[in-house]
Amino acid sequence: MLFAELIVKGLVYGCMYAMMAVGLTLVYGLLRILHIAHAGVFALGAYMAVTVTNATGSLAFGFVIAAAVSAVAGIAIYRLAYQPILHHSAFVPMVVSIGLFIVMQEGFRLIFGAYGIAFDDNPWYVAHVDLAGISLTYVEIAMVVMSVVLLVGFGLFAGLTRAGIGWRATVTDPQMATSFGVDPVRVRYLNFLFGSALAGIAGGLVGLLNNYVEPTMGGAVSYKALAIVVLGGLGSVRGTLIASLVLGVVESFGAIYLADIFDRDAIGFLFLIVVLMVRPQGLLGRR
């Protein structure tokens, strides 16, 4: 039974990674920027969820605000930090992104304190249900449901609507899409809006899962999300989704069977490095 439980727990984490990593993949696919500051957006979402929920008593309202504020933050990051330097080589935006991430993390420490905040009323992270012998908390179930709903919703949007088709066209060939009347700047805004809202919701959910929100919480998750994006073949959404789930499962097994040699965070990167040695283009990437 341990085997099945490890797989299920791994998939739960995989769903959370997917919500983070899709935003990163979209940014990379469109702008070729390693958006490390995504971690800050994730933590911002968590802080919004916890403070608004504690202030109003409504979890739903807390998450709506978390998604909205994260989306606005994402757009602001694009407009103020990235847009002025897009003409430089990839190194420049990456360094800006690192700087921005540090500033956000330190900002949270100054504003909300270094010791972290818990939800006043959070019965869902301990309350659990048994599914065929595997016990899952309500938050874990919510994580899976939310990520499936949001990502399927996004898939339908990208596949079926005019705006979604314009978006995909821009990712494939910005120049061609522009000459067919797609506004590339609007696509970028949409991109940051959606990816950042997802990261904010993921942050709120992780806050609920651990019942704890702290300034550095974005770090480990988003470094792993970066690893996933590379693993999936930078810029490939399908690869990213598969890589998220695979990494979640690999980690959950590694944390048990390699516990004496490596900690949990190292296992994900070890897996990444091994995969890249065999397939430098990532799991589904094309050369």
């Binding site: 590379v230 040699i261 190292a266 990167f269 430098p280």
Partner: peptide, 25 residues
Amino acid sequence: LRVRHDFLAVTTMGIGFVFLGFVRK
């Protein structure tokens, strides 16, 4: 030699975590 640019940035970042994760245990 195998990966370039952005892949390399993430890989070297990963080396740091693998080193720390190893030493800590």
